[in-house]
Design a protein around this nucleic acid. Sequence first.
DNA 1: CTTGGAATTGAACGCGCGTGCAGATACCAC
DNA 2: GTGGTATCTGCACGCGCGTTCAATTCCAAG
Lengths: 195, 195
Amino acid sequence: MARKTGSHSDITGPRVRAAALQLFARDGFAAVSMRQIAAEVGVQAGALYLYTPDKQALLFDLLKAHMDDVLSHWAAEPKGTGPQAALEAFVRFHIRFSLTRAEAVFLSYMELRNLTPEHFAQIEALRRAYEDQLEAILEDGQAAGIFAVPDTKLATMAIIAMLTGVNTWYREGGRLSRDRVEQIYQDMVRRAVQA
Amino acid sequence: MARKTGSHSDITGPRVRAAALQLFARDGFAAVSMRQIAAEVGVQAGALYLYTPDKQALLFDLLKAHMDDVLSHWAAEPKGTGPQAALEAFVRFHIRFSLTRAEAVFLSYMELRNLTPEHFAQIEALRRAYEDQLEAILEDGQAAGIFAVPDTKLATMAIIAMLTGVNTWYREGGRLSRDRVEQIYQDMVRRAVQA
DNA sequence: CTTGGAATTGAACGCGCGTGCAGATACCAC
DNA sequence: GTGGTATCTGCACGCGCGTTCAATTCCAAG
């Protein structure tokens, strides 16, 4: 079995993952059948169980991989010097990354309730770890007297919600370029937290 | 039949609506069966069809009623004088209303894809009408030189996303009171748009 | 060319789904 | 009490679901 041998270790087959991601994002986890995913891959339904123990684990794999992806890419992002630059880097990164991974981002906050409690807790922890990255920046700026934020946790949630919201309306080739959007959001965020 | 006679006109039975709202919000539209809703009401599944033509229309009724509710309550909200006061009123209203109607708000942006295109268009139009209320405030302030917003449409989406995000983390009896949350968000929003 | 394990099929399982409908029941005007 | 109508039950229908598994096909190593 592919699951126990091969060089993929415990990674779900790429073609299966891609199909599942696309369909889950478009129609919702509960509305997509294993047969539909299989058809997209060009295989019979039973063959999917060579790559995942069950449907729910397939969803978890997608969310887990996405969160790992977010965290590792943020870790590798240049952050400049000081809280101001770091905040700007975060805003730019979050918007850019969310737009290039729109389906995964969408899944990650729409389908959490379809995870088992154990899997949910894992994703939740990764999400919190990401939020903590932003909160640390705000705390630094607050300590340095650059930012005036009454509650860093609230400000963190507010900023992330605002940034993630870009996914709901931004369309490639629309009125505003991605660069322009990033710039405007940076201005708004900077003013919202500045001392 | 209740649907064709009675004083309810075409309004779905209140008990059915309440049960559907609660279950759809908790488990998702696709994951809730008509039998579960019926059980919650204390009735057999077939009886639900006295109140709704089908499952999808039940969802639409909930979303439509919510959007009407939002718009009529905002219309009745005192808005003070001038863009600054109006913006504060909007922020306060949106947070307060979203928190008291958490389930409906959640449904309204999670289950849009389960509507028929016609129903979707109706809800979308109401949503845009609501967004236009905020955008008009920003435009007024911009024209008056009170606000400095490069793009009122973008700012509208950013602010609404930020405010609606409160629903994802706020818990009654938590660290921050509702009044305090409203106050902090008002400060952030005001600073984000102020000239 | 043989062989053996990996990959996949195809059929089957039990189940719950949304919905329809004939018949039973509850309720209210007379 | 009787009649009629609003309400609801109980069952049925066809269907697609997630998942399993024996049987088959594929393919590289010997």
